[in-house]
């Protein structure tokens, strides 16, 4: 039933989609283009291609990396993200299994407290949390990972608990009858079954921790910088920005995300949908 009018409709919707794609990718492309222009040619004419006067080669990148100490910010972001997410996945899956399988008033209450924490905005605990972290000396990268475990546990325990409830308890009972202790049962039987949820939890937490600005800034910001902190600090004291360095650092901040996205796109989209539906 391919009629002429439906073909026209088809082409129109393709044209609309292509125009929208340009609108979605355009801003990133414009930043990329400007990262190769001299810093005084960016603010006024961001939509022009670099030409022989405005082209500055890799100057912005070299200057920007030096100015923001980008390499150590990148290393810090990577360190915090990898370890926080690993710790969150490991410990919250264990906790979720424990509070789902051990049925007492206490574990039941815990579950609701975890769920409750999901709706509390960060600003509510921001000041007191950074003071507490200060007092018990958690104001360092390792301490920050511990805080991420605490602050991320609400959503992660919630997601894991939902899945544990659907696992038939007989499997675990059978294994423990055979003489496995709970630790062995968890790591050899339960954790492998939890893998799809573990991927969802990992993806959601990677996206959160990698991009997070305020929490790391409050806890370790005076000594260490992650990528978002390094970018925010490019803005000088009087609102002046080295636009060249800014453009180059924005590009360097986006590249790892694009690589991550394109290499595990399927998991990311599935994980985000699962997180949205259950969360």
């Amino acid at each position: 039933m391919e009629t002429k009018s439906s073909r026209i409709k088809d082409s129109i919707s393709y044209i609309v989609l292509i125009l929208l794609s340009i609108a979605f990718l355009g801003p990133i492309f414009i930043v990329l283009m400007n990262s190769f222009k001299g810093k005084f040619y960016i603010s006024d004419t961001p939509f022009l291609f670099p030409n022989s006067t405005t082209f500055s080669g890799l100057e912005n990148y070299i200057g920007g990396i030096a100015k923001t100490d980008f390499m150590s910010a990148f290393g810090m972001s990577l360190f915090i993200t990898v370890f926080s997410v690993a710790v969150i996945v490991l410990f919250t899956s264990m906790t979720a299994w424990y509070i789902t399988r051990v049925k007492t008033k206490f574990t039941n209450m815990l579950y609701y407290v975890f769920v409750f924490s999901m709706i509390v905005p960060f600003q509510m605990v921001m000041f007191t949390m950074s003071k507490v972290a200060n007092i018990i000396h958690l104001d360092n990268p390792i301490g920050l990972i511990f805080i991420y475990l605490g602050f991320g546990s609400g959503l992660s325990v919630f997601l894991f608990s939902g899945f544990v409830k659907s696992i038939p308890i007989e499997i675990e009972e059978a294994v423990m009858m055979d003489g496995c202790n709970p630790v062995q049962a968890f790591f050899s039987i339960v954790l492998p079954i939890l893998k799809p949820t573990a991927i969802t939890v990992a993806i959601l937490n990677v996206m959160w921790v990698w991009n997070d600005y305020l929490l790391p800034d409050l806890i370790i910001g005076t000594e260490f910088k992650t990528i978002p902190i390094a970018i925010q600090y490019l803005k000088g004291g009087y609102g002046s920005i080295d636009m060249g360095a800014m453009m180059a650092m924005l590009v360097l901040a986006i590249v790892p995300i694009v690589i991550f996205y394109l290499s595990c796109q399927k998991y990311i989209i599935e994980g985000v949908v699962a997180g949205a539906v259950k969360g």
Binding site: F91, T92, M94, T95, W97, Y98, I99, L110, V113, F114, S117, V120, V125, T128, M129, V132, A133, I136, L138, F146, I147, Y148, L149, G150, F151, S153, G154, V157, P182, F186
Partner: peptide, 16 residues
């Protein structure tokens, strides 16, 4: 199983 998460949760969320 539960204590590490609970400690972190208390320090990062509950007490604050």
């Amino acid at each position: 199983f539960a204590l590490p998460t609970l400690l972190a949760f208390s320090v990062a969320f509950l007490i604050p």
